[in-house]
Design a protein around this nucleic acid. Structure first.
Length: 124
DNA sequence: CGGATTTGACCGGCGC
DNA sequence: GCGCCGGTCAAATCCG
């Protein structure tokens, strides 16, 4: 009916959703944040299995590129690592993967102890 | 059925 | 002071 502009965001719940939204990020900005590591990956596929499970949580278009940027988050139990994937306009097969934060567990849940160290060292 | 994914909208910071 | 951009979340939907 007359909502027209009122139904901006379909809030299934009541203003609770809005309240919750305000509650979000109440104070999560620490002094220093983990640096972000950029990696250039050459692959025609979007899903690069790094050993972790990623869940896409957003997509936005960048100005310098004609392709959208994908935002991924780690779905691990205690891993809040964030991953940013950007595609190059001049090199569609080239993907820039930016990792933010540090994983708590080893990606490979099935590697030998000695191997795990090697693998971890290989990534970093 | 569950988990994952998609899209839209909103918010905060910064620049001019 | 205001506008703009980037970034994130939430809900809805889809697939296996």
């Amino acid at each position: 009916m007359g909502e027209g502009l009122g139904s901006k965001r379909q809030i299934g719940d009541n203003n609770l959703a809005i309240a919750a939204m305000k509650m979000k990020k109440v104070k999560a900005r620490r002094k220093v944040r983990e640096p972000r590591f950029c990696f250039k990956t050459m692959s025609d596929v979007d899903v690069l299995d790094d050993g972790y499970k990623w869940r896409k949580y957003g997509q936005k278009v960048v100005k310098n590129t004609q392709h959208p940027r994908s935002y991924y988050r780690c779905t691990q139990d205690n891993c809040r690592v964030k991953k940013r994937v950007e595609r190059l306009a001049e090199d569609p097969r080239m993907v820039i993967t930016t990792y933010e934060g540090r994983h708590i567990h080893s990606p490979w849940h099935d590697v030998d102890d000695s191997n795990a160290s090697s693998q971890l060292d290989f990534i970093w």
